[in-house]
Design a protein around this nucleic acid. Structure first.
Length: 423
DNA sequence: TCTGGGGTCCTAGGACCC
DNA sequence: TCTGGGGTCCTAGGACCC
């Protein structure tokens, strides 16, 4: 039996979330900006129609924004994460096999489900719209790559009502459709590969589908071979139903203003390490390698510097305080005075599951169990009383470098004091 | 003045070993 | 002067994704 994999994706997710709680934004061109209000990372359909590109710096858009009355919102990740959870929970009712692929996308395996898949997809759309207010599109196909492509087709209006099921197409119609889509739209074909493929005469998705998988593997890599096979309807990429633990954890931010002194950098790095360590403990892992980096802005004429260093830890750990200590040491090694730093960050890697390390023959951790108990207490207190209630002293309290958020929407769904009241 | 953040996988090439 | 061949492991960097 043909596989039927669905890809459900919220239209203009961040912009749509803002609209749910602020209907004045409906029909208006809306963009959501990245941290520091740096770049446009989400656009409503109206903003896209004005030619606003993904990732475009906001300061370059101010003129066109004024002309057309574009509304810019600072990103509100607490709100988007909460809305995402609601959408995913609704979708999970439609199939036992779900992969939450990103904050606004989910694969569902519908293979063998009774009833027309088009109807099931419409029911998903209806329930999500009704229960969250968010608009979604659904693409269905025999492989993940084709499901993604079907979703694209639905969004572009190749199929009616926001749903497209490639399994319901006959071969000729499907090929006609694929012949009209550029290869850059295919999942896994990015900026660099498009010109190389074009050079081989492969321009449309249909061309790529008709390429020889073996040959493509030789010319490119096994990834490309899988893409070609998936386009032919052969599922090569399985659904990942349980999210595997992260192999690396990054925490980094651009500063709201250039930072020059070691003290401020120390505060920032200390905060980032603590955040990364929290994520590490949440997935019950230890890290053995800590990497810290700082750099100046890559743009402009000012003097540029980029410093980074990795340190192998004496033993894998999940202890914020130990990690902060090492990070502070690294920072002192890579810091150079006289530069205007724009960004700092840390990365934890060589991650292994907790347990196993540092246990004696009876399965107990030796004396330094205090560290583990300290972290449990710290996470519990911060969970109860709010992030950063307890923290390393090196984090400081002022954070003058913190990011700018000029137009942040309230935390409608995650803070009692900001809940939207309707009368 | 102002340019995001967080991930994964694959490959090539060097180091090292026998 | 002459200087093999094959295997593994590791890392940096490139490509992609949202």
């Amino acid at each position: 039996m043909n596989r039927a994999i669905a890809l459900i994706d919220v239209n203009n997710f961040y912009a749509s979330c803002e609209r749910v709680f602020n209907p004045k934004l409906n029909g208006q061109p809306v963009v959501v900006l990245s941290n520091n209000d740096g770049c446009a990372i989400a656009r409503s359909a109206e903003a896209k129609a004005l030619g606003i590109k993904m990732g475009e710096p906001w300061f370059k858009l101010k003129d066109i924004a004024r002309q057309h009355g574009i509304i810019a919102m600072s990103s509100n990740y607490a709100l988007y994460a909460d809305m995402s959870n609601r959408v995913m929970a609704i979708l999970s009712k439609f199939s036992p096999d779900q992969e939450v692929y990103s904050i606004d996308e989910s694969f569902l395996d519908l293979t063998g489900m009774p009833g027309r898949h088009l109807d099931i997809a419409q029911e998903m759309r209806g329930r999500i719209r009704q229960e969250t207010g968010l608009p979604v599109c659904v693409g269905i196909g025999p492989s993940k790559t084709l499901a993604k492509l079907a979703n694209h087709a639905a969004k572009k209006g190749y199929a009616p009502d926001g749903v497209c099921d490639f399994n319901g197409f006959n071969e000729r119609d499907l090929e006609t459709l694929l012949a009209g889509i550029e290869i850059g739209e295919v999942w896994g074909i990015g900026r660099r590969l498009v010109p190389r493929l074009n050079g081989l005469g492969i321009k449309s998705v249909l061309d790529l589908k008709r390429a020889d998988p073996e040959h493509m593997r030789q010319q490119f890599s096994v990834v490309m071979e899988k893409t070609v096979r998936e386009l032919r309807g052969q599922a090569c990429i399985e659904l990942k139903e349980v999210a595997p633990p992260k192999k690396q954890i990054i925490s980094s931010r651009s500063f709201g203003f250039p930072v020059t002194d070691l003290d401020s950098l120390s505060e920032a790095v200390s905060l980032y390490v603590s955040r990364a360590a929290e994520k590490l403990r949440r997935q019950e892992s230890y890290a053995a390698l800590l990497h810290v980096f700082i750099h100046t802005s890559p743009f402009g004429d000012g003097p540029k510097y980029s410093g980074s260093l990795s340190v192998k830890l004496p033993a894998p750990t999940d202890d914020s305080l130990q990690l902060v200590r090492v990070a502070m040491w690294i920072l002192r090694q890579i810091y150079r005075p006289g530069f205007r730093y724009q960004k700092a960050g840390v990365m934890l890697s060589e991650i292994t599951p907790a347990g196993g390390q540092q246990t004696d023959m009876f399965g107990f951790r030796p004396a330094d169990d205090r560290s583990a108990r300290r972290m449990v207490a710290m996470d519990a207190i911060n969970g109860r009383w709010g992030k950063q209630t307890i923290r390393a002293a090196s984090q400081g309290y002022k954070a003058p470098w913190a990011m700018r958020q000029g137009n942040l929407s309230p935390s409608y769904t995650t803070r009692w004091d900001e809940v939207l009241l309707v009368d």
